[in-house]
Simulated scan of single mutants.
Amino acid sequence: MRVLFILILLANLGVYALGQGWLGMRPEDEGRDTRRFTQELNPGAVTLTPRPAP
Rank of each mutant, 00 (worst) to 15 (best):
G31M: 00
G31S: 05
P54Y: 11
V15E: 04
D29L: 01
D33L: 06
L9T: 12
R32E: 07
P50D: 14
G31Q: 02
L7G: 04
Q39G: 02
W22L: 08
L48S: 13
A11L: 06
L13Y: 11
L13P: 00
P52D: 15
T49Q: 12
A53L: 13
L13I: 01
L9W: 08
M25H: 13
A11M: 11
V15L: 12
D33I: 00
F5L: 07
T34I: 14
E40H: 09
Q20F: 02
L10E: 08
L9N: 05
L18N: 13
L4Q: 15
I8P: 01
E30D: 14
W22V: 09
Q20C: 00
P43S: 07
G44R: 04
E40V: 10
L23W: 05
T47F: 02
M25K: 09
Q20V: 11
F37S: 07
T47Y: 00
L13V: 12
G21S: 12
E28V: 01
N12E: 06
Q20I: 09
V3M: 01
I8H: 03
A17E: 00
P27N: 00
I6D: 04
T47H: 04
L13R: 07
L48K: 13
N42E: 03
V3D: 12
L23K: 02
V46Q: 02
P27T: 06
R32Y: 04
V46D: 03
A53R: 15
V46Y: 03
I6W: 02
G24E: 05
F37C: 01
T47P: 03
G14T: 12
L7S: 05
V46R: 01
T47S: 09
E30M: 10
V15M: 10
L23Y: 02
L4Y: 12
E40F: 08
R2N: 08
N42R: 08
A53G: 11
G21A: 10
T34N: 02
L10Q: 06
I8A: 10
L9M: 11
F37H: 11
L9Y: 08
L7E: 01
P43Q: 09
T34L: 07
M1W: 05
P27H: 00
R36Q: 11
Q20N: 12
V46H: 05
G21D: 07
E30L: 14
R2M: 08
A11N: 01
Y16K: 09
D33Y: 05
T49V: 15
A17Y: 01
T34M: 09
L23T: 11
P27R: 02
R32S: 00
A17F: 05
L13K: 11
A45T: 03
W22M: 10
A17D: 01
A11D: 03
D29S: 04
A53D: 15
E40N: 12
G14L: 04
M1V: 07
A45N: 05
R32F: 02
I6G: 00
L23I: 05
E30A: 10
A11T: 06
M1R: 11
G21H: 03
